[in-house]
């Protein structure tokens, strides 16, 4: 099984390179995932990362793009709850990248 090495400890990953165990997540792991995604985390990124993680913990489901936009608009306002803003922060796809950095399972492909 693939893993991520953090402080000389191996953290297991799933076959898609996402965190295998939700509860293993730390901010340090987030920074490492971001590096692999070629993203330097700013406070704006962190806000989204914490948002999707909180979303998962509440709904037991990784948010699909459309619903991430909607939930963010409701909670943080339309300036942040729009896909342009999210794609600026996570160019390869906010649902895909932010969930990985937040230590969540990969969202379903088909939604």
């Amino acid at each position: 099984m693939a893993h991520l090495t953090i402080n000389e400890t191996a953290v297991p990953l799933d076959q898609h390179g996402y965190l295998a165990n939700l509860q293993d997540w730390t901010e340090q792991i987030a920074v490492e995932f971001a590096r692999l995604e070629n993203i330097v985390l700013t406070s704006a990124h962190w806000e989204v990362v914490h948002f999707v993680r909180q979303f998962y913990l509440e709904f037991n489901s990784s948010p699909a793009m459309r619903i991430l936009v909607k939930a963010m608009a409701q909670q943080l306002g339309p300036d942040k709850g729009n896909s342009k803003y999210l794609f600026m922060l996570f160019p390869q796809g906010p649902a895909k990248q932010a969930t990985r950095i937040a230590g969540l399972p990969k969202p379903a492909k088909c939604l």
Binding site: E58, F59, S61, I67, K70, A71
Partner: peptide, 14 residues
């Protein structure tokens, strides 16, 4: 099994 009924709270968001 996955505790999907927790996700029913998504109904409001959708």
């Amino acid at each position: 099994l996955k505790a999907y009924p927790r996700s029913f709270k998504l109904f409001a968001l959708y």
